[in-house]
Nucleic acid binder design. Structure first.
Lengths: 185, 185
DNA sequence: CCATTGTTGAAACAGTCGTACCATATACTG
DNA sequence: CAGTATATGGTACGACTGTTTCAACAATGG
């Protein structure tokens, strides 16, 4: 008996909170402004998520879920050559529409360096869909279980993203990827 | 007339504040704990630096200055081959002793993504000594004023640092650099 | 109706933050 | 000595933080 629970409310809040975090970043996140933007109250956020830390964890999980989904939708066909796939992924991840996700990745990484205790599964949590991405390049590896080539490919992508987000110099970063493709041949 | 100013105090405070920031990170930096650790008071920090923001700016400038100095001291000789220089720089920057600097770089980068207004000269401030570093590889460029190859080299280093600081997997990241060296030949 | 369970608002708590204000101490000149 | 400039300590302000407490309201079942 009693009033039936409404799990949909928490889901809806989580989705909109994730939008908010992607738009405003993780660094200065505060319950009151977040609640105001979501049309709810800090009281309800804690009611639904228990604590700010748990809310953040849930938001990051949701963001990761979204990223993985969007990536799966936009992966170049298996049939394409490794180079075509690399170019496709770079074009996708470096597009302005992905900027909020990219920023969040760097924010989480930096926060994880200062507070590792908040990210118990940091290796998986942060690099999860980067690793998924890296698996795409397994066929340019030297041996079947070579993890080194995917690591290098991912490092180039991450490093160029660092550069691009800092300097905004798209031409130079695009050409650096071209150069890497040449080296891979 | 009057009591003579003591500029050395500000310098000493700046040096020790830089130590503190390198040890504790930028993210949660707060005047009271900082002052306590330095044996001074928030009052004096503001007296010497004007505001927290100006103090942070000064600390970052000092950290950058130190990084450039340490780098200059440890640069492999000009005579060495590009590959030897790349390996030397990787060994230097990825050493545990450089971890505080590396963390600070990633923290500043992430903060700059969220608050670009605090880093008016971000392209220079953040990438300054990375660019200095990149200049070291000018001779493996395809043309005299090629900025693309240094960009790629720096991206590999930054990307591998991201990976190493996240996963702690030194073996895999070291081998990824080996692989990059092979590609460069 | 009542009892029960889920939901929500308003307010307060205990703390931290950067910073400003006021007094005082210190070290120098004349 | 007085005069004057720098250097400090102490304190308080106003705004914020995550979280708790208490009360009320809503929707169900009996």
């Amino acid at each position: 008996m009693g009033r039936p629970p409404d799990p949909a409310r928490r889901e809806a809040t989580l989705a909109r909170a994730t939008d908010y975090v992607l738009a405003h970043g993780l660094a200065g996140l505060s319950l009151r402004p977040l609640a105001a933007a979501l049309g709810t109250s800090p009281r309800m956020l804690l009611y639904d998520f228990g604590s700010k830390q748990e809310l953040v964890t849930a938001v990051l999980a949701e963001a990761r879920r979204r990223g993985a989904t969007r990536l799966a939708e936009n992966l170049p066909p298996e049939a394409a050559s490794p180079e075509e796939r690399l170019r496709g992924i770079w074009a996708w991840i470096s597009a302005p529409e992905r900027a909020p996700y990219v920023r969040l990745i760097f924010e989480v990484h930096a926060d994880g360096l200062a507070h590792p205790e908040n990210y118990p599964d940091r290796a998986e949590a942060i690099t999860n869909w980067f690793n998924t991405l890296g698996a795409t390049f397994r066929d340019i590896a030297t041996t079947p279980d070579d993890t080194v080539t995917p690591t290098l490919v991912m490092a180039v992508i991450r490093g160029l993203l660092f550069d691009l987000t800092t300097t905004g110099d798209r031409h130079r970063t695009d050409r650096a990827l071209d150069r890497f493709c040449e080296l891979l041949r």
